[in-house]
Design a protein around this nucleic acid. Sequence first.
RNA 1: GGGGGCGUGGUGAAGUCUGGAGUUCACGCCGGCCUGUCAAGCCGGAGGUCGCGGGUUCAAAUCCCGUCGUCCCCGCCA
Length: 604
Amino acid sequence: MGEPVRSDRAGELRASDAGREVRLAGWVASRRDLGGVVFLVLRDASGEAQVVVDPQAVPAAGEVAKDLRDEYCITVSGTVRPRPDGTVNPGMATGEIEVAAADVRVLSPSDPLPFQIDDRADVDEVRRLQWRYLDLRRPRMKANLIARSRAVSAMRRSMEGQGFLEVETPTLIRSTPEGARDMLVPSRLRAGSFYALPQSPQLFKQLLMIGGVERYYQIARCYRDEDFRSDRQLEFAQLDLEGAFWGRDDVLATLESVMVEVARELRGVELSTPFPRLTYREAMARYGTDKPDVRLGMEICDLGGAFAGTGFKAFAGVLDAGGVVRGINAGPLGMGRSGLDALGDLAKGAGAKGLAWLVVEDDGSLRSPIAKFLGDDEAAAVKEAMGAGPGDTLLLVADTPEIAAPALDRVRRHLGEPDDPDELAFLWVIDFPVFEKAPDGSLAPAHHPFTSPHDVDEMGSDPEHALSHAYDLVLNGSELGSGSVRIHDPEVQRRVFEILGISDEEAESRFGWFLEALRYGTPPHAGFAVGIDRLVSILQGEPNIREVIPFPKTQTGADPLTKAPTPVAADQLAELGLEAAGEDADGVAGGDGAAGEGGGASAG
RNA sequence: GGGGGCGUGGUGAAGUCUGGAGUUCACGCCGGCCUGUCAAGCCGGAGGUCGCGGGUUCAAAUCCCGUCGUCCCCGCCA
């Protein structure tokens, strides 16, 4: 077996190889048996090449070829030759040549396939995941795997070129019950205690800054035990980075250079930098969201001025109560009553009491259920404020800012469509508030407690308006990642905990090890993390991140291929000092996979 | 926790609203023919618990209830 299985890669053969003896290996992509001659398309990772088997000339090869089926793994020895006149296939990279087979051998036969390898049919995703190894042979997944590899490679190239050190951090870490639910791992050596899988390497990368690394990056696997979305899995990958003696603009510039590199690699485009920056406040005012898709147009207008002193009681009441009237010019929708009602339902789903619509008629008058309540001046002011012309549909929400903004965002995203689907609209959202205001008016921390506030005094005295040095990177309406300038002063860190309602004692018991670290000459530092799955899925035009993950899980956290998760044997649990709760308490791995209610495990 | 879509031979779809024999289309599979095909072509064939359970009905893929799976969304994701 000293002889190599193959001499050449199928997809790389060209006319200049004519006359060469080659040995190929790969899979049977198709077989066209014309009786007197058999054409095979042999596919390997490099591409495809046509093989011709002539049973008259080579009877043994003819016998083998007759029994080949799709996806048999084979080797073919033969001679590369130009195709006869009129049979060149210009749609194929190797279409000028074919390999005249002298010998065909089956390395490994294939059962009939559960679905076809070509892209003809949109196979049910569970089917694809159940036979993911076959799905990976299909063009779509193959292209996505390659794209992901190239994206990560571009990131590494960019980081290395800028002097960053790649450092790995642990994936079995201390649980910090903040933010998302932790994925827990029981400890056998300390029964009853648990590790957590990292939601991010946050504190470790800060320790690396204290450790003098100065420029750190990592392709980090992160875990968050929250419900799935099209852009969320239990585990995901981030480009995580941090720099010492850095401020915000160093971070943004570095990330921009990484994005330029990745976009060049995957899209062959040159992004223009710097990316636009919006403050959080601007983003909310103009788009009603902290991750605006600026490709959609239809910016939100504030109509408080136009309706000041209005006689329309619904609006006047909202304005008097400190609320807002805002709207978007949806352009020439040409929508009937039912369509407009559906938009209204969308707005109501976001908490709005309703969505008022006004259509500008050709003569400039307004057709609307509320038209009769509006004076001529008001109508003119509204049209003026929204830049409305004949045919335009104007959609208005009157409510508190916390409700009006997201409601209009939903309507806007529902209606909007980018002019150019290939456009990449990167932008930064900066100056996030320290606290986010929920629709019910309550305040909740918007970021992790190691984020530096603009002013810690203000954070205490005016929490509603206090800003932090936190920023997000947004691409086409998706949050790609976020970062911040970190607190490096232990006293500031202590006060931030205090304001967040974490007592000195609690902070000491949970983060004492980190607070101590801050006391040993911590450099100012800042950093960021980019969601790799999201970035690659958007650049690849994929609708969800599962398409760029080789072995993803379904929405209920199941892997249709391996059937994970499963119950485990009682003795396996006993060793960990655990007792399973739920119906499958004494189930074993490989059972029917029905997870017990609660599914949890308690320390025993 | 909540809202919505989907589930029909191996695959994809139509049929479901308006109940009437597992009907149809494409691909695949099996067999045969075929010496220049290109997701070959032609002829023949096999293949089904219409996700599962219950109900209504003379009769259910179709209507009703429940349940499972999956996808999208809200909540959640500091």
